[in-house]
Simulated scan of single mutants.
Amino acid sequence: MISADPDVVRLLADPLRAQLVRILAQGPATTSHLVADTGAKQPNVSGHLKQLREAGVVTAEPRGRFTFYRLVPAVLQGAALHLADLAEQARATAGTFRAC
C-alpha cells in the first residue's frame, strides 16, 4: 500500500479514477459494472483499478466467477486529512510573506 497521502491525491486527480471511486463509494462493483457505468473500455478500467489497488484505495474480492472491487475508507480518509492539514497550514500562514 502507498502510505503517502499525496500519492493517493495524485491518483484521484485522474477523471476516470475519480469517477471509479465515486461509483465504488455506492458499494462494491465488478469491472463489468464499472465499464457500463463509465462508458470506458474494459482494459482502461482494469488498468485504473490496478493502480487504485496498488495504492490501497480499493481491494479486490473474488466471489464466484466475478471479482468485486471495494473502497478502503481509511485510505481515502488519510488523503482527506492530508488535504485538511494543508488547508489549515495555508490559513495559518496566509498573511506571512517570505522575505525577498
Results as ranks from 00 to 15, higher is better:
A55S: 12
G27R: 11
L76N: 01
A40P: 03
S32K: 13
L16H: 11
V8F: 04
D5K: 04
A92L: 13
C100A: 13
T67M: 01
R98I: 08
F68G: 05
T30Q: 04
D85N: 06
L20E: 02
G95F: 12
L24K: 00
C100L: 14
A94C: 08
A74Q: 13
L52K: 00
C100I: 07
V9G: 07
L71M: 04
E61M: 06
L11R: 02
P43R: 12
G78K: 03
Q51N: 07
L24G: 00
Q77A: 02
R91W: 14
R91P: 00
R91F: 10
Q26S: 11
A94I: 11
I23A: 02
T38G: 04
G27H: 14
R63M: 08
I2V: 08
Q89G: 02
D85E: 06
L34D: 00
D85P: 00
V72K: 04
A92T: 09
S3G: 12
Q26P: 02
A4V: 06
L52P: 01
A87Y: 02
L83V: 14
L76W: 01
P73D: 02
H82C: 12
L12V: 07
T59H: 05
E88G: 09
P6E: 13
A84Q: 13
L81T: 14
T31M: 03
A29Q: 15
A90I: 07
R63G: 02
G56N: 09
K50E: 07
T30K: 04
L34G: 01
R91T: 09
V8L: 07
A40V: 03
H48I: 01
A84H: 11
A84I: 06
A29S: 14
L24E: 01
L34S: 01
A84T: 08
R70E: 08
R53N: 06
Q51A: 07
P6R: 12
H82S: 12
A94F: 11
V8K: 04
Q26H: 12
A87Q: 06
L86V: 05
L34C: 02
S32T: 15
G95M: 09
P28W: 04
F97M: 10
S46N: 03
E88M: 13
A90Q: 14
S32Y: 10
V21G: 04
K50L: 14
T59N: 10
Y69A: 00
G64L: 07
A84G: 04
C100M: 11
V8E: 00
L71N: 03
R98P: 07
P15Y: 05
V58G: 03
A84V: 06
D85T: 01
T59I: 13
A79Q: 09
C100Y: 11
R70Q: 15
E54R: 15
S46P: 00
A29Y: 06
P73R: 03
L52D: 01
P73M: 04
V57C: 02
R65G: 00
H33R: 11
S32I: 10
